[in-house]
């Protein structure tokens, strides 16, 4: 990774300044100019290093306290199709294929479902069940009762 890109990541990972010319402020911090910073951020967005730029909501504070981790057993040969269909739902923030550990754990598809409360999460989980149809060989929803630790991205060598 280019030195400048790394410096831009370090300067922006805690957020852009809430001032009229945020990229000019970042440019000052990294010893570059406004146009270059914008161009590098555009390039990092195109290459996928930056997924998106925008407001990052704190769902818990906003009242989204459901936070259900839905886990699904689907046929191994259907995991691709099922994962893509579930991942495309706008209320699913993450969808993953993970290994089974039978007999204690037979679920191979994980989908994080967010809602204001458990009822809303369960309604969304029912939509997933309907979508999967016969591929749903069993599912559960694991609600989080406590967040014990949560830290964001830290670049090695960046500010703690």
């Amino acid at each position: 990774m280019e030195t400048l890109d790394r410096a831009i990541i370090e300067a922006t990972q805690a957020g852009l300044p809430l001032t009229p010319r945020p990229y000019a402020t970042v440019a000052e911090q990294v010893g570059s100019d406004e146009a270059t910073v914008m161009a590098r951020m555009q390039a990092m967005q195109e290459s996928g290093i930056i997924r998106r730029i925008g407001a990052v909501p704190n769902h818990y504070v906003l009242g989204f306290r459901g936070n259900g981790m839905s886990v699904w057993e689907v046929p191994e040969d259907r995991i691709q199709a099922c994962g893509e269909r579930v991942g495309a739902l706008d209320f699913v923030s993450h969808a993953y294929h993970r290994p089974k550990h039978p007999p204690l754990w037979n679920y191979n598809l994980f989908a994080m479902v967010h809602g204001r409360d458990r009822e809303e999460v369960m309604q969304k989980v029912e939509k997933i069940a309907t979508l999967l149809g016969d591929d749903d060989l069993g599912h559960e929803v694991l609600f989080s009762s406590r967040i014990l630790k949560k830290t964001g991205l830290r670049l090695p060598g960046g500010k703690p």
């Binding site: 990541i9 922006t12 990972q13 805690a14 957020g15 852009l16 809430l18 951020m41 990092m44 967005q45 996928g48 290093i49 930056i50 997924r51 998106r52 730029i53 925008g54 407001a55 990052v56 909501p57 704190n58 504070v61 906003l62 964001g152 991205l153």
Partner: peptide, 12 residues
């Protein structure tokens, strides 16, 4: 008020 953690890039 903590409704957003920041405005800025989200990195892969």
């Amino acid at each position: 008020q903590g409704y957003i953690s920041r405005v800025g890039p989200v990195f892969k």
